[in-house]
Design a protein around this nucleic acid. Structure first.
Length: 659
RNA sequence: GCUGUUGUAGCUCAGGGGUAGAGCACCUCAUUGGUAAUGAGGAGGUCGGGAGUUCAAAUCUCCCCAACAGCACCA
């Protein structure tokens, strides 16, 4: 594009590729009006070179422009943000002495934090929502004013909005201070906003009240936060609310009780009582992982539960992790700690005896039962507990071996997730934090290797794996990969992790003898795949909504007799299926088949095998699968064949195919 | 840990200053019924724990515990 001689004109490129010239200073609204009246009416903002801007803002330089209408996905952010402002105005209209703080957009909605002596009640929410609809009805314009710091200070000072004054001070020098007003109500805000409050629409709902610390710092005052959700139209809102209901239905705490998998009780906050069926799932998962790590050349070990505090002082845990540790004292006044991590134990095993470079890499795995005194408010079913089992492993290797080991671990992690039907995986690389140990050269080297690995992970995945960088988020002892998986209803869970550790081998004085008979410090890699077996099972329950795959189901089939005449045959079917290695139970109770089907369906038995006179006579079975209303009749032999095939764990299936 | 809410039978929940109620589940009996609840009868709780107020508390007050939502935390 040639420079226009007339500096008063700018050139704007539209999404269709057309380029038009405008007088500099033209507003987005004027451009929209120039295109069509209806567009102008529907538009809520414009995007210039990727940045969302107020429709009324003038344009001073050329570039790619796009007019954003209310139905555009990018407008959703505006709807939510505007809704937050309306919420704040509503609250202050009802309770004028409430102070406002911040109200950002979040996933699915927005929130606003208020400082108020009395907490909000659910009834208050209804009242506020009503007031919000009133404000939206008024349909007043959002008006922006760019002011000096002094002006802004005067405005909020007069209003007594101390939090806004604090926010004002935090705005970096050189950045505009903007005030947005809707009628009489004014807020300090970066914007952008839609032209009027009316465009917020009616597809919103206040969801809940909660406490939240001012500026996210637990040393600060606790504010009252109101959460809301907002959407472009009623249908989207309805879908969202429906999704929430679905999520509630698959809550692992509810399903865990219904399926008789586990329970919690008051005397053991944060520790799991695994029932027979839940423990079966647990054991299936452990067996699977055990086969996988064997396949990948790990050796399983087991280190003590309780160790002298001296060991934890050496590892450093006693200093920086003590408030999270359970400790125990004996009669002779020795103090012990129940292990919160397995690493120190594994280093002891590494150190016991003299290690040669020929042995490396040493891959030590443990299904390590650890205990951590988690804050009471953090506990959440199986997802956050105080006692759990890590599928932990430590790889002791040379720095030359690091790259290959990271890739090997990556392969193990990704195949495991895919075996559990997790499709979307994000791998995040966290790099050196401010507080860290080790030399800069060491960090440089490790980060370079891991960046290379990260690139390779992405390249090899055919776009299935996304990668991200988390600068400064690494552990103090080394950079790490975090593996985040997305479940069936779109929630993200961080499970796997690969962490390079410069610190621990040194602290414990672990070394191996290299080619030149010199002592060398090994690189230690911490790695987990499921993270916590307990939590992973919680995630699986929610991911599958209780419909566990056959191979991991605690009870794979129930054989239900239709009349007592068929009881004997039912027992025979059970015996046959059990002999084939399936986990099967008989239901020969004096109940109707409808009753039995309902009951076993509710507890998510994958296959209900009904047998009556016909089946007994013909040597067949009638199978009804969970989630289906239909049944299939086949011979007992066919049933054994099809169920045993399906019950083969995915790794074994893979091995069979390869072999 | 912080803010708020909740805690009544195995589960879901009603009640509420004068010593507890429903449905489902459970037990018994009858029923032998073809794919999401057969009928009848019965048993079961002292109302999360402790202290206090009161003639009297499950119901009011205080303390503690646990759960739930969010925040903070999550090596």
């Amino acid at each position: 594009m040639a420079d226009n001689a007339n500096s008063k004109n700018i050139e704007l490129e539209f999404p269709d590729g057309s380029v038009r010239s405008f007088e500099t200073g033209i507003t987005g609204r004027a451009i929209a009006e120039g295109i069509s009246k209806s567009l102008a009416k529907k538009s809520v903002a414009y995007v210039l070179n990727g940045e969302l801007i107020d429709l009324a803002d003038p344009i001073h330089s050329g570039g790619k422009i796009e007019i954003v209408t209310r139905s555009d996905d990018r407008a959703l952010e505006l709807i939510r943000h505007d809704c937050a402002h309306v919420l704040a105005e509503a609250v202050q209209e009802i309770w004028p002495d409430t102070k406002v703080t911040i109200g950002p957009v979040i996933e699915n909605g927005f929130y606003y934090d208020f400082d108020r002596a009395e907490p909000f009640t659910p009834e208050d929410l209804e009242r506020i929502e009503k007031k919000m609809r009133e404000i939206i009805q008024r349909n007043l314009p959002f008006e922006k004013k760019i002011v000096s710091r002094e002006e802004a200070r005067a405005v909020f000072d007069a209003m007594g909005e101390s939090y806004k004054l604090e926010l004002l001070d935090a705005i970096p020098e050189g950045e505009d201070v903007k005030l947005y007003s809707q009628g009489e109500w004014t807020d300090l805000c970066r914007g952008p906003h839609m032209p009027t409050t009316g465009q917020v629409g009616s597809a919103f709902k206040l969801m809940s009240v909660a406490g939240a610390y001012w500026r996210g710092d637990s040393d600060n005052r606790m504010l009252s936060r109101i959460y809301g959700t907002a959407w472009a139209d009623e249908k989207q809102l309805k879908n969202y609310l429906h999704m929430l209901e679905e999520a509630q239905k698959r809550d692992h705490r509810k399903l865990g009780r219904e399926m008789d998998l586990f329970h919690f009780q008051e005397e053991g906050p944060g520790v799991v009582f695994w029932h027979a069926k839940g423990w079966k799932v647990f054991q299936q998962l452990v067996s699977y992982m055990r086969r996988r790590i064997e396949e990948h050349g790990y050796d399983e070990v087991n280190a003590p539960q309780i160790l002298d505090k001296a060991l934890w002082q050496t590892s450093g845990h006693w200093d920086w992790y003590r408030e999270n540790m359970f400790t125990t004292q004996t009669e002779d006044d020795r103090e012990f700690a129940i292990k919160p991590m397995n690493c120190p134990g594994h280093v002891q095993i590494f150190k016991n005896g003299l290690r040669s470079y020929r042995e490396l890499p040493i891959k030590m795995a443990e299904f390590g039962n650890v205990h951590r005194y988690e804050p009471s408010g953090a506990l959440h079913g199986l997802m956050r507990v105080r006692g759990f089992t890590q599928d932990d492993a430590h790889v002791f290797c040379t720095s030359e071996q690091l790259e290959a080991e990271c890739l090997r671990i990556n392969d193990l992690i990704l195949t495991t997730y895919s075996d559990f039907d997790f499709g979307d995986i994000v791998v995040k690389l966290s790099t050196r934090p401010e507080k860290r140990v080790g030399s800069e050269e060491g960090w440089d080297r490790a980060e370079a290797i891991m960046q290379k690995v990260l690139n390779q992970i992405e390249a090899e995945s055919d776009g299935r794996i996304k990668t991200e960088l988390n600068p400064g988020e690494g552990a103090f002892y080394g950079p790490k990969f975090e593996y985040v998986l997305r479940d069936a209803i779109g929630r993200d869970w961080q499970c796997g992790t690969t962490q390079v550790d410069f610190a621990l081998p040194e602290r414990f004085g672990a070394f191996y003898i290299d080619q030149n008979s010199n002592k060398q410090e090994p690189v230690m890699v911490h790695r987990a795949i499921c993270g916590s077996m307990e939590r992973f099972i919680g995630i699986l329950i929610e991911h599958y909504a209780g419909h566990l795959p056959l191979w991991i189901s605690p009870v794979q089939a129930v054989v239900a007799s239709i009349t007592s005449d068929a009881n004997e045959y039912a027992e025979k079917v059970v015996a046959t299926l059990k002999a084939a290695g399936l986990r099967v139970e008989a239901d020969t109770r004096n109940e109707k088949i409808n009753y039995k089907v309902r009951e076993h369906s509710l507890v998510k038995i994958p296959a209900i095998i009904a047998v009556g006179g016909r089946e007994a006579e013909q040597g067949t079975v009638s199978i009804r699968r969970l989630g289906s209303k239909h049944q299939t009749t086949m011979t007992l032999e066919e049933a054994v064949e099809s169920l045993t095939q399906e019950a083969i764990a995915p790794d074994l299936k893979r091995a069979a195919q390869a072999g």
